[in-house]
Design a protein around this nucleic acid. Sequence first.
DNA 1: ACGCTTTACTAAAGCGCTTTACAAAGAGCT
DNA 2: AGCTCTTTGTAAAGCGCTTTAGTAAAGCGT
Lengths: 344, 344
Amino acid sequence: MTRKATIGDVAKRAKVSPTAVSRWLNGGLELPETTGERIRTAVRELDYQPHAQARRLSKGKAEAIGIVVPDISNAFFALLAGEAERVAVASGHDVMIWSSRNRIERELACFDRLRAGYIDGLLLITNHEDDGRLAERIRSMPGRVVIIDEDVVGGDSAPRFFVENETGGYEATKHLLAHGHRRIAHIGGPKGVMSAIERAQGWRRAMTEAGITPDPAWHIRTEYEVEPATRDAEQLFALDPLPTAIFAGSDAVALGVMTTARRKGVSIPHDISLVGFDGMPINDLFGPPLTSIAQPIDDLGRLGALRLIAMINGEKFDGTPTRLPVQLVARGSVAAPLKNKVSG
Amino acid sequence: MTRKATIGDVAKRAKVSPTAVSRWLNGGLELPETTGERIRTAVRELDYQPHAQARRLSKGKAEAIGIVVPDISNAFFALLAGEAERVAVASGHDVMIWSSRNRIERELACFDRLRAGYIDGLLLITNHEDDGRLAERIRSMPGRVVIIDEDVVGGDSAPRFFVENETGGYEATKHLLAHGHRRIAHIGGPKGVMSAIERAQGWRRAMTEAGITPDPAWHIRTEYEVEPATRDAEQLFALDPLPTAIFAGSDAVALGVMTTARRKGVSIPHDISLVGFDGMPINDLFGPPLTSIAQPIDDLGRLGALRLIAMINGEKFDGTPTRLPVQLVARGSVAAPLKNKVSG
DNA sequence: ACGCTTTACTAAAGCGCTTTACAAAGAGCT
DNA sequence: AGCTCTTTGTAAAGCGCTTTAGTAAAGCGT
């Protein structure tokens, strides 16, 4: 294999110095047309391409950002990361997407990459309670981190973008109440996770306003993933009397509920109504189509990436969180409860 | 912001040369415990972390690979990339995942990154017909590229991993035939795409063996995405008589068919049976659960990544394609055709 | 006391690029 | 003619690391 052409090879062939080639290519030097043409020809003939590593070392910038998500094969995160990537690429940054699989070590590894100059900034999407290490890393890298979707306690030095979780939980529950439900259970995200806390608060507030004191057994916690939710939903189906409706803390959780319902021979929405949270486009295709609180996933990804890039370019921001609105999308998984169906 | 510690700072504090620090850290130098301890302390106190760009420039390796997929927010590719990533990370490589959005320019950009030394190898997952440029790049980077899932004509210098597309199409069609269907339509992937061609061949072979000559109108092509498939499926629902079954070239296409069926008031599987291709785990949750030809997605990603890393480490391979088996997963989207239901 | 081996390191070059500082040659002005 | 200004470049340093080649000192056998 022939050695790759370097800037020196180009310079030699164009009969100028490497300096001239570099500066001319990067727009820092005006040269007469004949000289420019010689360089252009040399570049073409040698198929020259600057060595990324060298250029980055020299410039002191990686021209790249990283995106950590809990799991890239989860459609929600894939959508989020996809949108963020689009924005970053458009501004000339390379993008690395990493799955943390909810292992904090893998998240910390991304901070190491940041410190190592491998990326200029990090878009952090995390899903689990922090033990303090994440918060510490965030503080130690000011202007380099943007947090999306889920808070990190103590990470408030970084810009953060969330949705109106409490409102979402409230609206979901109101929707079920409006259909006549009273025994509304909530299966939400794990302990210590902001979105789970806020969505549960919204649920509780709507219930209280309706004059209902939720039975503690109606509130259970699970992971935001299909598998664990499928398992943990069992508890709900063991209750007597059964809840007539379930507000699931995410669409993945709702899918878990659907799976368990199917296995138990419980029909949705005939026997139990179900509302999810996320508003994934695919919800439309489930049996039944899933009513859900839609998050502005694109905006979340886009705004986060834009903010990160602005910071990399030197703009200053504080950690005031931005809250984006959510919206109920009614589909087919909610009906009136059985007992009320006729009597109203 | 205080400057980041360099290897020189560590050396000074430990009262040794940078050489010693580098070699000791990288395991190339035995040192007495006291010296080692001094270095260890210095590293800790300065919170030293080698500069990735510099190390990579120096070593002439990026210790990273890239994965291009058509669209990371497509669950199939997300699964594929996720598995490949896991393998690569386990072997100490950084992973960059890029979405090409089926733009060949974006795929070529990934080859540029390869040439620029930004990554050591590329896992290529492409979805559309090549105009020759892809094949040329693949040839020009021997031992650096592995192709997965979909062939590139002329890219046969690189290792390739595909599934048994023809068999899959055959099995899907046989399954429908076994349920008594005769008017079996096929809505498959785009022209010039290997998997689409092979799956269609399987369909055609099963039909022919059953003594049926497929009406040309029964075979239509679309993109492997939900949106276009939703649109293009219209043609199938405009036929008279309607097909009694549809073999969709991918699960995304099947989803599109389901969407259109729903809109047209056509019930699956009551009025029309449906078989997809991919075997996405989520198929279980659709209404109805989707019968599909399952691909070994994990294996595809894993084997591809392993092969790529082996090549980076100097092993030689030729372009003999590896074919992985597929398997029919029967769920609820296939029933006997209406007219045959009673008469058998 | 001599050479040989081992231990414990180091100096310097080099990876390929960018950037700062500077210079030669000509043009224009007084 | 002498001066400044512009044009057209170049030399050299430096980014932070690895690696090659080597060396001073200590230990060892005879």
